[in-house]
């Protein structure tokens, strides 16, 4: 493969659409016009939840609307283009609430795994319920909420691993699978089921490790070094 071919392959990472629309309901409506439009939550669950991380590297070159560095990984979009800081009132994840760990396990459709390195969480949150009472996101909080592990149900298909990454975003591995380390400050938004982008909160702008395991996507955020984060990730039980 020569240089041009390699460049073309690398270009993909810069041209990736930021978000995939959900067409399931509309396709179904068209195929099934007389029937009531019922949403199939378990199917939507495979595609919809995505966390959007907007990396805000200070002083990066501004590319006029165009070649933005869009990185999509495991339900997470990292946009390394300069973006304005999140505006508007920060809102929490949709319908987020505190529950006990055992209760949380009954309210999500996936096994909740706890990092043995951090031990039992101080607080547990579930968020974004579907109609049947299953929640899409579970968050384990540690150290007074400064370290946070989100697990969310589902991921977008991971096809492209070849990326041009900025200094603040690097590829790494967790359990032999690709993972992403965002070392710099960033704002965090959450894309809910309807595709609406919500500003989650500005509470943490610390480093984040993102990886996928067993069909779930994990996001570990807090005042951790990359090695500490990888260590925590490897200790999920």
């Amino acid at each position: 493969m020569d240089d041009l071919e390699r460049e073309l392959r690398d270009l993909t990472g810069w041209l990736e659409p930021a978000r995939t629309p959900d067409v399931t309901a509309r396709v179904r409506a068209r195929l099934d016009a007389p029937a009531p439009r019922r949403r199939r939550r378990y199917v939507l669950a495979t595609v919809l939840a995505a966390l959007l991380v907007v990396a805000l590297p200070p002083g990066r070159a501004a590319l006029a609307d165009a070649v933005t560095g869009l990185l999509r990984f495991s339900g997470v979009v990292i946009d390394s283009a300069p973006a304005p800081p999140p505006t508007g009132t920060p809102s929490p994840l949709p319908a987020q609430r505190h529950v006990a760990l055992a209760q949380a396990q009954r309210q999500v459709r996936f096994p909740i795994r706890v990092p043995s390195r951090l031990g039992a969480p101080e607080r547990v949150l579930v968020a974004d319920p579907d109609g049947a009472g299953g929640h899409r996101v579970v968050s384990l909080l540690y150290r007074g909420g400064t370290v946070r592990l989100d697990a969310f149900d589902g991921s977008l298909d991971i096809v492209f691993h070849k990326r041009s990454l900025g200094a603040d975003v690097t590829l790494t591995q967790v359990g032999g699978e690709f993972a992403i380390w965002v070392g710099g400050p960033h704002a965090l938004a959450y894309v809910d089921r309807s595709g609406t982008e919500r500003v989650a909160t500005a509470r943490l702008s610390a480093a984040t490790l993102i990886w996928e395991q067993g069909g779930l996507s994990y996001r570990l955020e807090g005042d951790l070094t990359r090695e500490q984060a990888l260590d925590v990730a490897a200790s999920l039980r």
């Binding site: 041209l15 200070p58 990066r60 501004a62 590319l63 006029a64 165009a66 070649v67 869009l70 900025g166």
Partner: peptide, 24 residues
């Protein structure tokens, strides 16, 4: 594509690598 309307790179801050600009 979003890259279609690519315009010349606006000069950025001091930490801008020339390489990044050239790559863009």
């Amino acid at each position: 594509l979003r890259a279609a309307a690519a315009e010349p790179v606006v000069a950025g801050g001091a930490d801008d690598g020339l390489d990044a600009v050239l790559a863009a």
